[in-house]
Simulated assay, not measured.
Amino acid sequence: MAWRNSAPRRKITVRCLNMWIKRKPKNRRLERGNVLDVKLRAKEIRAARLRLATTAVGLSLGTVMGLYLLWRVGDWALDEFVFNNDAFAIRELDIQTDGSIPVEQLRKWAGVRPGDNLLALDLNRVKDDLELAPMIQSVAVERVLPRTLKISVIEREPIARMKMLQLQPGGGLELVSYYLDKSGHVIQPLPACVDTISLNGDALPVLSGGNAAEFLPGSAIHSPKVSAALRLIAEFENSPMAGLVDLKSVDVSGTEVLQVTTGQGSRITIALDRLEDQLRHWRLVYDLGKNMGKAIGTLDLSVTNNAPAIWLEAAPAPPLAPKPNSASPNRNKHV
């Protein structure tokens, strides 16, 4: 019985071993095929990625080279057909000014020469160079194709002057006049640029008592007293007192007041504000004194009510000083 039972067991064992031995070679072939297939796909993916990267790099380099060549060609075309083209060379320089600066001086400051290329010219550079001159308020520069450059200059109009001592290069001191426009910009005109026909400096009111350190040519003075004095001088021409008296000098050294001296010998104290009301009050006092046959000696208009005044016996009034002639627009012109 024991032998009979062991025989089937041996058969089963042998059969299982045979099945395992037969199946193992078959599984190895399948595994080897799968490995080869995975390696093949990985190589294809790497090759595809390499081709894509190469194509991208080539396109990028081609685009950069194309843009560079296009830029170089465009730059060459601009130089050849525009900036170096004699058809756009400046032949006419039209300079106009409303003041007294000679045209040749403006041409020198502009730094523009006949033959310069009109399109290559930096208009902002010309404008900035001209506006560096203290006498110039603003400049407009315009191209008029094909060969004309137009420059329009607006000069500062002085309404007051201040005399200051200035050290000369050769030694010694000289009394130099600085001029102020209504915005407070300091002007020191060159002797060659002063036109005595359009600008009679001696007829302008003298500003005294200011801080000499603030009087820098080309810069603006921001002192409240100087600003008030310039407003007074500017508004005086359209005030009720215009044509009756002259403003000879304005002293700004006082505290919160201006000391005005007229060409007729009157001394008027004026507050920094309420200029229009004070000028109107001045006219009322002037008319009152005229009716009494008196002239104003001193008058304190800084007092709101009951302005103190000292009367003088009326005398023949001296003639009014000639007013500076306003320069006519476009008086200086060169084409």
Rank of each mutant, 00 (worst) to 15 (best):
K323W: 01
A120W: 00
S302Y: 09
I45S: 07
L199V: 15
A234M: 05
Y68M: 12
S253R: 12
S223C: 12
D195Y: 09
E92M: 10
K127S: 05
E174Q: 14
Q264F: 00
S266T: 02
N305Y: 10
I151Y: 00
E80C: 03
Y68G: 12
V38F: 02
W282D: 04
S100T: 12
S266H: 08
A229E: 07
H334S: 13
A47Y: 02
A2F: 04
T97D: 01
W76I: 08
N211T: 06
A212L: 09
L50K: 13
L320F: 08
C193M: 07
R49T: 01
A77N: 12
G209L: 09
K150V: 03
I95C: 09
D277M: 11
K22Q: 12
S60Y: 11
I21V: 14
I90L: 02
R147K: 15
M162E: 04
A307Q: 11
E131H: 09
L167H: 11
V153Q: 01
M19R: 11
I197T: 08
K108G: 03
N27P: 00
Y68L: 15
K290A: 14
Q168G: 04
I268D: 00
V260F: 02
L149A: 06
P146G: 06
T262V: 05
L204Y: 01
G170Y: 01
L165Q: 15
R49N: 01
S249L: 09
V194K: 07
W20N: 12
E237S: 12
E142D: 06
D37Q: 15
Q96D: 01
D181Y: 09
I95P: 06
V186M: 06
F81V: 10
R32Y: 02
R267A: 08
C16E: 10
Q278H: 09
A203L: 02
L50P: 00
A220S: 13
L119D: 00
P189E: 07
I233R: 06
T55Q: 15
Q137D: 14
P158E: 03
R147L: 05
P8W: 10
P217D: 13
G218A: 05
